[in-house]
Amino acid sequence: MKGKDMGAPLLAARGLRLAFGGVKAADGIDLDVMPGEFLAIIGPNGAGKTTFINMATGYLRPQAGSIAYDGHSILGLAPRAIVRRGIARSFQLPQLFTEHTVLENAALAIAARTGLWSPLARLLRPGIRAEAMALLDRFGLGPLAGVRADALNEGARKLADIAMAVALQPRLLLMDEPTSGVATAEKMTVVETLVRVLRQAGVTAVFVEHDMEVVARFADRVAVWSQGRILALGPPEQVLADPVVRREVIGIEAGSGHA
């Protein structure tokens, strides 16, 4: 979906500002996320990439600016209210229910979407179990369904974390470094799996990524973050070739450069 200009943006951020003490984590962020696109966010540590995700999901409230989702403001809404509108997120450090099995983690997210308030029906009743297994299978996690989440390796934890977000059937998925901590050997497999699942589900995705190879291969557009601002925004072949971006951002991430 490399085409641009597809009408109204799914997520529209305008003039977002948020400072922690003297550090400007967001210093006037304007960004439109278009329906169906894969938007990569790159930039050095501390540039405010995660802060943007935290503001878009209701975890942090910007000091100024507005965020609209599907034409309606979501400013000031609690995370769970934003989730119900169709924005899900995954985490840089996987946030799994560590004493639950992988299957239960997925099932709980499905139950959260379809009906949690039934104190006597079993969580792992056939309908939910089947949906959870199908979801885990799509992520290649089927064989690990019965394993406790705290016993998984990093790659599997990462995928399980994202699977929980996908279980919510979001229209927009925000992923904070989906490949960090994943062994280099399995990184491309993880991303390919992920992209396939998301494309199939028709999910719009924003993902923070440090691996330029991943960005060049899978992003429709790239937004470059620097000191709370968007330094550049456009197709990866254009943005990653920009000399300023190369010096300011990619230069810091020596070794992972591509493009």
């Binding site: 999901t57 609690a78 995370p79 769970r80 989730v83 119900r84 899900a88 997120r89 946030q95 799994l96 229910f97 560590t98 004493e99 639950h100 709980l108 997210a109 959260a112 979407r113 949690l116 929980m164 977000a165 279980a167 919510l168």
Partner: peptide, 12 residues
């Protein structure tokens, strides 16, 4: 007990 914040982020 283990991940209260995640509950909020799955809408619970």
């Amino acid at each position: 007990k283990t991940r209260e914040t995640r509950l909020e982020f799955i809408g619970v």
